[in-house]
Design a protein around this nucleic acid. Structure first.
Lengths: 146, 146
DNA sequence: ATCTTAAATAAGAACGTTCCTAATTAAACA
DNA sequence: TGTTTAATTAGGAACGTTCTTATTTAAGAT
């Protein structure tokens, strides 16, 4: 997905297109892997020396409400990560050692879960699903150093 | 599940049985619904005036590692909640307005997810799955006041 | 081009949670 | 019973995230 498409979507939904937001979108478009808020702030401080972390948080929040960005919760000490969503909704395997995430082409909501929520007369807004553990590489490294 | 069983399990696993921990366990055994850390701290300050929040966090962490306590992550502003796990592993519907949670007799890991993680050669440590939205009551209240 | 206004911003306070450190204490053993 | 030791504790610092407030600004209307 391209920067202008995202910005048009923002406008269409009544959001303003500020230089800071454009920069956040551009950084996400450029990114090869999911970015943390710290990644984004550090990168964007080059352009906007007093860009606040809050602006990044609010930008990615809006973008994920629009479905343009995926939020990857991290169990570990590291914070959340964000990626542009050029593909259908999906979830992640997250390595608690190195923080890397692998996309999972599976969503439990498409199965029984949605029906169960309906059954409880619950208006669903969203859901989380993540698997965390150790990736192959981190397990190999541990063996090597022990 | 009863307090002494839990404490025996703690001992059996090499954890110490401190008065603070006993009190945390007793509070969870007594509880009718999942408790937040604040709930626990407020309640236990009666017995231990300078009980720290950290002690509660560490206690419930140990208990959930032992599989005795379930952690319910909350998306809203309110923090996590904990409940004694007397039943098989399950997940929750969480209302983002009132914070209440409803147990969901369903776990996506039992289905395709486990196989997909294996396929990525990923050593699974755990997972999260929660559905959030508005419960019936909160939707009714909103209609009434608007 | 200017005015108006609702939305976005930066800064820092606040909140939930984790981490660090020094002091305390439960449990095992002499 | 007293000693030793590793686990646990309280307290506060630190971290990620959200909220509050006062200021700025993009976008639409004049």
């Amino acid at each position: 997905m391209e920067t202008e498409q995202v910005l048009n979507l923002l406008k269409a939904k009544g959001y303003k297109c500020t230089p800071q937001r454009r920069a956040v979108v551009e950084a996400l478009v450029r990114a090869e892997h999911p970015l943390s808020v710290k990644d984004l702030v550090d990168e964007l401080r080059g352009l906007f020396p007093d860009m606040s972390a809050d602006t990044v948080y609010r930008s990615v929040k809006v973008l994920s409400e629009l479905g343009v960005v995926n939020l990857i919760h991290n169990q570990g000490k590291e914070g959340a990560r964000f990626e542009l969503d050029g593909r259908p909704h999906h979830h992640h395997l997250v390595c608690v050692t190195c923080g890397k995430s692998v996309c999972l082409p599976y969503c439990p909501m498409e199965e029984k879960a949605e029906a169960l929520a309906k059954h409880e007369d619950f208006k669903v807004l969203g859901h989380t699903f993540e698997i965390f553990g150790h990736c192959r590489e981190c397990r190999d490294n541990k063996e090597g150093t022990s």
